[in-house]
């Protein structure tokens, strides 16, 4: 059975910032737009976590909106 396509994600590098993660994940977009997208697609990190936006090594960080 082939694997169906699922929402693409990355994981943070050690001590990586949102800027860096957004730039490498969405290189074709202006940085501020890329960061806004990453924030909006990853509410578990940027909305529900305390402190907000703390990137952890184990995180799943989506680099596209929901697909299904």
């Amino acid at each position: 059975m082939a694997l169906s396509l699922q929402r693409r994600f990355t994981t943070p590098e050690p001590d990586e910032s949102l800027e860096s993660l957004a730039a490498r994940s969405l290189p074709d977009l202006p940085l501020d737009v890329a960061m806004e997208h990453i924030r909006g697609w990853n509410l578990h990190i940027f909305l529900m976590r305390r402190p907000r936006g703390l990137l952890l090594g184990g995180d799943v960080v989506f680099i596209e909106p929901p697909q299904t």
């Binding site: 509410l43 909305l47 909106p65 929901p66 697909q67 299904t68």
Partner: peptide, 20 residues
Amino acid sequence: SYENGVVGTVILDADTAFEI
């Protein structure tokens, strides 16, 4: 309803929900 037309759910805990 997301910007790409996909409909999905977001689950918020009480603290977050009250805050937003």
